[in-house]
Design a protein around this nucleic acid. Structure first.
Lengths: 246, 246
DNA sequence: CTCACTTTGTGCAAACGTTCACAAGAGCGT
DNA sequence: ACGCTCTTGTGAACGTTTGCACAAAGTGAG
């Protein structure tokens, strides 16, 4: 790190925390564009995204100086720049493995197509499911992982299988050339260096909520048997949330 | 340690980052228990959870000193302590609003029940869906949010509606007394202080993957039109992943 | 042109999170 | 009882992220 030869690239080291927020900004920007808003200030954008305005400005400054002082950011231009930085100006064929409830929901989910993600194939191991139709896709056999990945140049795989088969599917995806994996199975996947795994775990999210919920309603049972509730004014910002009242 | 006033509480301030990892440890611990493993070292646990062992020890130390030097952690005991800390020793009735593809997948998802989460009701606004059966639950009208929340003492709500109706549903849930919300709709929810919102956004996860995937395969088009691929040995650890080869 | 006003981009310090490295304990064989 | 080995719990160093506060830069009126 630190050494930067000569190629004044610019987008060399964007913090991970910033990357995770760019898609949120992007969504808000799209909303603005739909409403015909041409320019937007960091304050407005930040409010809509639920973050601090200084943080938003610093995040955007990592992509370059795309704002105009005294005015704000041009919505369309910023949409383009953020999209480009995230690599959304190109097409990303994805393969969904597992056509159970979750796999079907994912295949039907419209949010993918609108951002350059295209479902190349939906696979499953169950013969009873293979051949059925989901959102215009015919479920193929999981045996065809290698062919599908090669044929459609897939570099992103989505695992929506039961926990038991997830690692095996993952191994085959990686061996076939997939370098990015979105894992919905409740297991910790082991992958070779150079492969990127992101996990979405519904149960874990609920458990984190449960922790805070429990915290909010700690009931102190005093020696005399009286109960007193501890106030509910804990920090609501666990990554999200904002205040409604002015 | 350092100064601790007088109220030797113990579970005063557990870092958010630690909370987010506890459910992962818990899952690994359950796996150990199933395999009949009685004690486990921080090294083994950390490897299975995909984290650094020092981090794991520090995380667990926030709950108390439940390990034995020279031996490790007693699996059953640790399961209990982590569960208690997360508030999983009690029952959490949840309500799922939105019985579309995602709502159905969530209702069917078995991972909830196994951790003390119980689906109290599934609601939807579409008359065509109301009355249908999902995993033993009859879908009820979304008009009944207030009654359902009050009747089942629901404090956790899951929003699986389209983006447009999410904020409205959220407001009604909050007004009815729900203080924790798991949001699957692609919008930033605005809630009063004291309400905890967690967001799961499938599209955002894919966009983050796309960014890294793009990074890995930067194609430099030289002036002569030749292409050269930049190696794929970027840091694979974006929160997950481990190395397979020794 | 100048002044008043707006809003970006960023230096800096504090807060937070991660990792190293090691002292303090605990078990075990002799 | 002693020494050896193993493993926890944690002080301290380091890296990352956040948020303040303000200079720099733009706009528009007079």
């Amino acid at each position: 790190m630190s050494r930067r030869p000569a190629t004044g690239n610019g987008s060399q080291g964007i913090p991970e925390a910033t990357i995770a927020r760019l898609p949120v900004y992007l969504r808000v920007l799209y909303t603005c564009a739909e409403q015909g808003i041409a320019t937007v200030s960091s304050e407005e954008l930040a409010a809509a995204a639920g973050v601090n305005s200084a943080k938003l400005r610093k995040d955007l400054s990592h992509l370059g100086s795309y704002g105009t002082r005294g005015v704000g950011y041009d919505v369309d231009y910023l949409v383009y720049q953020v999209s480009r930085e995230l690599g959304l100006t190109q097409d990303w064929p994805i393969v969904i493995v597992g056509a159970g409830n979750l796999g079907r929901a994912l295949t039907n989910y419209g949010g993918f197509a609108s951002r350059g993600f295209r479902v190349a194939a939906v696979l499953d191991a169950d013969p009873a499911v293979i051949g059925s139709e989901i959102a215009g896709h015919t479920v193929e056999s999981a045996d065809r992982i290698e062919q599908v990945v090669a044929q459609h140049q897939v570099s992103i795989g989505v695992i929506a299988t039961p926990a038991g088969t997830a690692q095996g599917v993952c191994d085959r995806l990686v061996a076939a050339g997939v370098t990015s994996i979105l894992n919905f199975a409740p297991v910790v996947l082991t992958v070779p260096l150079g492969v990127d795994v992101r996990k979405v775990d519904l149960s874990i999210e609920l458990q984190i909520l449960a922790f805070h919920a429990q915290r909010r309603s700690i009931v102190r049972v005093a020696p005399d048997g009286k109960r007193s509730y501890q106030g509910a004014s804990l920090n609501a910002a666990a990554g999200e949330s904002a205040v409604a009242a002015p």
